[in-house]
């Protein structure tokens, strides 16, 4: 499987995401924000960081970069897209995912070993987990509070589009403890915590994040 990782000006975790993709058993392909080209990849990761310095709003400028035209189009065709942290913000700004991410309730940048519960497992990014599985994944964000109107939140819960929820104390004020959501189809997933930082015992919080990069169901589809 070829998994593209987009680098925007200000991306920080693109190289870590590429490494996680390789540890997941796939080929990582570096994609550039300024290209109208996905280089034939089977899936795309939008990594964490501070694209365009978080100017205007997090993800607001990246949304209009040339590569995002291609990502939005491919996502519409069903290509798996995972947005991590800043990538999640970009997906919300692109309207590929509902809601928005605003400043943490207590205004502080967080860096935590965060417990999560995986709630939706019929997405290509979470198929390696069991429904209700509890994992520990690195969380680091300044603007990670997920918000949406009540109607949208109810719809997300009703349709099973909440992918992961924070366990224990809510770290950033996200409504209904939401840590990650998907689109209806499930191919587009946004996640505030950083699974790419939880893929090796040597550094990080263990290897609970590796499942996001297994893409096992997708591989089965592509090679079927």
């Amino acid at each position: 499987m070829k998994v593209g990782v987009v680098t925007f000006p200000g991306s920080l975790d693109d190289v870590d995401a590429q490494r996680a993709v390789r540890l997941g058993g796939h080929e990582a392909v570096a994609l550039w924000h300024g290209d109208h080209n996905l280089q034939g990849v089977d899936a795309v990761v939008l990594p964490g960081g501070f694209s365009y310095g978080d100017y205007l709003r997090c993800g607001a400028i990246s949304r209009f970069s040339p590569v995002m035209t291609e990502v939005v189009e491919a996502a519409g065709r069903g290509m798996p897209v995972l947005g991590i942290c800043n990538g999640f913000q970009i997906l919300c700004e692109s309207h590929l995912l509902p809601g928005a991410l605003v400043r943490n309730q207590r205004q502080k940048f967080l860096c935590l070993d965060q417990r999560l519960r995986i709630e939706r497992t019929d997405t290509p990014w979470t198929a390696a987990y069991a429904e209700g599985q509890e994992v520990v994944i690195a969380l680091k964000n300044g603007e990670g509070s997920f918000v949406a109107d009540t109607e949208t939140l109810d719809r997300l819960e009703g349709e099973g589009q909440v992918v992961a929820r924070y366990l224990g104390e809510n770290p950033n004020g996200s409504l209904r403890d939401i840590a990650g959501v998907s689109n209806e189809r499930g191919n587009v997933v946004g996640l505030m915590p950083h699974p790419e930082h939880s893929v090796e015992e040597l550094c990080g919080t263990g290897t609970d994040g590796l499942g996001f990069f297994a893409l096992a169901t997708l591989a089965a589809e592509v090679f079927a």
Partner: peptide, 13 residues
């Protein structure tokens, strides 16, 4: 402006 129903942590600070 942030919508009235959206929590505004900066304003609160």
């Amino acid at each position: 402006m942030p919508k009235p129903e959206i929590l505004d942590p900066q304003g609160k600070a």
